[in-house]
Design a protein around this nucleic acid. Sequence first.
DNA 1: TTGTATGCGTTATCAT
DNA 2: ATGATAACGCATACAA
Lengths: 336, 336
Amino acid sequence: MVTITDIAKACGYSRATVSKALNGAPDVKKETVERIQECARKLGYHPNAAARALKVGRSYNIGVLFSDTSGVGLSHEYFSRIFESIKKEAEKQGYDITFISQNLGTMSMDYLEHTRYRSCDGVVIASADFHDPAIVRLGESDVPTVTLDYQFDSRTAILSDNVQGVDALVRYVYGKGHRRIAFIHGELTSVTQKRLASFKKTCMELGIQVPPEYILQGIYHDPKSSGLQTRALLALPDPPTCIFYPDDFSYIGGMNELERQGVQVPDQMSTVGYDGIHLSEVLRPRLTTYRQNAERMGAEAARLLIEEIEQPDTWLPQQITVEGQLLEGGTVAEPD
Amino acid sequence: MVTITDIAKACGYSRATVSKALNGAPDVKKETVERIQECARKLGYHPNAAARALKVGRSYNIGVLFSDTSGVGLSHEYFSRIFESIKKEAEKQGYDITFISQNLGTMSMDYLEHTRYRSCDGVVIASADFHDPAIVRLGESDVPTVTLDYQFDSRTAILSDNVQGVDALVRYVYGKGHRRIAFIHGELTSVTQKRLASFKKTCMELGIQVPPEYILQGIYHDPKSSGLQTRALLALPDPPTCIFYPDDFSYIGGMNELERQGVQVPDQMSTVGYDGIHLSEVLRPRLTTYRQNAERMGAEAARLLIEEIEQPDTWLPQQITVEGQLLEGGTVAEPD
DNA sequence: TTGTATGCGTTATCAT
DNA sequence: ATGATAACGCATACAA
């Protein structure tokens, strides 16, 4: 490994001068800077992140926390898109990514301890049980954090606009003429509650009566559950003309059940998903859904986190709501 | 941050003794060890990875490289499963994961330089253009590496058994009575070449003639391309009775095209995918496919890499071939 | 404009 | 069994 000392020897300056030259200090002669940089390049020098971190107390490393409560983890496209986007923005700004977990090897440490252990300058909490004491501890520590789809007090949060998303979908199907709309939602997280509230509110504003048997609990990312709830809806004496699914992937279960019972989409039943994953666009007919802007969410999370890290004095917590986009597919038709 | 010095002060020993006690050195009195550990626990001590890395030249950090040539990255379930599995095994053994990329911030560095910059103890190269000089440089360096689905000379490699996978699928559809089998393959990577060769070889062994127009090039993970190639196959004067797709996701394009043309699966056309992603199991009928054992591949990659890192003297390069499993769905029926 | 000296937290060597 | 000391690579306060 080639160090700053090697360069110093090679070009006849002191280690201090070399260090300054390489870091663009103002008090080094221009000519010297050039000579040193040239020399560094020739020797193939690259700084040692560990040494720098030890010295300056900054690691240029940000933690990413996906605690994966449901077990789908990054195989859920929404999260993998968010992750890729965080990574891209962080790298653009010179930061590496470290996954924060609990219980590394034999050492038992919680999320905060892990963060400290790796000297992470900040953490993006992307998917987690926000009531887990270990998560709360991290959120209340002095480590800069940004949460996604959840709001800690006095911290920065990036929120997907679930209210607007569901509102847009309801108004869209209303515009197509639907008045009997069912809503299969996921587990009761804070995201789910927002979607559900938005559904009810928009329906009320539009003067739509939603009978309680139209609102069913399913499971995110679980086609089987959506299939069962679809069956329940079809068995009602007065079934809906349109069904909202918890997300695009779980819609597959509904799609299969509808086909099994010979119910044509969209002629006999309209359907709507959520997320706008790749799959929704390759189904035929395309699934009408709401695409969450995961790319922007990840990028904003990284951007604001780094801002807080680099300008702590002018920093203020922000809540950014990121709108998505209605994707008009072919699964919503005018009801009879 | 609580350091070793704090503990030394708090319990009246020297920093050296504290360090030894915490690392299980044999020359510290048992009673002392206990007292020091107790004290460390009480103060909430955790080691500083950067300082340790600087001192001992080991970071307990392994690099993971997904260079994402096709742009799908971790949103491809095969890779996200591999990644999760690497991460899980690494963490079990006390290692963190760092993503290795090029061009961090303003510094221009290649993969090897990035690896050195973060003092990674080794790298798993999971998806990359293995002819890229930057990848080759990493593979030929003294950094321990393990590749997935590609073999560098004298290095450890984990290979999904593509030969056995395609062989199993061909024999399965042959057993169902198919003799006119088409094969849509992905871009011509080394993986594709293995699958293609295995297809031809097994067909030959079974005495099946495969006309050249039955072998078409598609694009991995691209339903559109599969749709187009499906159309081409259906337009042949003597169309196949069974179509192999590049992978499960791209099959969606074929599925749609078949439905559009009113061709029933499996009654009028049998279909086969590859990968065994979650999607294949929720389609109706279920897609008959070959599930690659991504979990084991990732775990083996991490395990062997760490073995090389920790026992360099007894290390030998290994090539491990990981078999998958045929998933019998409902898309293959006996042809007329 | 350049160089000297110091310390970040840790571990390893060598005395005691 | 324990402690003093040096060193890993780097950045910075201060001296020259």
